[in-house]
Simulated scan of single mutants.
Amino acid sequence: MAEIAVPAASRLHARLPGAHFHDCYRMALPDGRPVLALFLDAVARTPPWVNRLMALRNAVVAPLGLKNLGGLNNVDPAKPVDAYRPGDRVGIFTLLHVSDDEVVLGDADRHLDVQVSLCRLDDGLAVSTVVHVHRLLGHLYMLPVAPLHRRIVPAVMRRMG
């Protein structure tokens, strides 16, 4: 796994201008399944420490009026991959775009907008995140989240396949 620039082939590349935070990790493609299937497989096996961090996040932000996102692994294991449509909740995210080669998930709240892309490349899979913050609250929120995010994404990616 290596950190790379957000690929031009990703829909998130156009969201880079003005982003407060962005990152992208590339890994060998585990297999030829649609990328949504890879994502669902990975989040279903989210490391327990990630779920504990999400529970802590939800408890800390509740008094601030921010959304309780639940857990990263809050997906229906019985729902077939091809039944997902834009607008569906997938764990902590809403599905914004789905094709065999790219999935874009996101969440928006009054403090920030985050989008995550899983994009099939010729030489692997790129998982990109782009965050646009709103207000001081978004900047304060990202202070602890950004370094944790850089640990969480690779840990979840290692669960793919």
Rank of each mutant, 00 (worst) to 15 (best):
L38Q: 06
L105A: 05
V153Y: 10
T46A: 10
P48R: 10
L112N: 02
H20R: 15
A155T: 14
P77Q: 08
L125D: 04
L40Q: 05
G138K: 00
R151G: 14
S10F: 01
N68Y: 00
L69F: 05
S117W: 03
H149V: 00
M157C: 04
V103F: 00
R120W: 04
G161L: 11
D113G: 08
N68L: 09
P77V: 11
H22I: 05
M27P: 07
A126F: 03
S10N: 08
R120N: 06
A78G: 12
V61M: 13
P147Q: 03
A108N: 10
D31G: 15
P34M: 00
R33N: 04
A9H: 00
A78H: 10
A5W: 08
F39S: 15
R45P: 02
L38D: 02
C24P: 02
L137V: 13
G65Y: 10
N74Y: 07
D123S: 07
N74K: 15
N74L: 11
L121C: 08
I152T: 11
L38I: 00
N58A: 12
D107L: 05
F21A: 03
V131T: 01
P47M: 09
E3S: 13
L36E: 08
P30I: 01
V104E: 02
D113P: 06
D101N: 14
G106R: 07
A126M: 00
L40E: 01
R110M: 04
S117H: 06
V145Q: 10
V50A: 08
K79M: 09
P7T: 08
S117G: 06
G106C: 00
N58C: 08
D113L: 04
R85M: 10
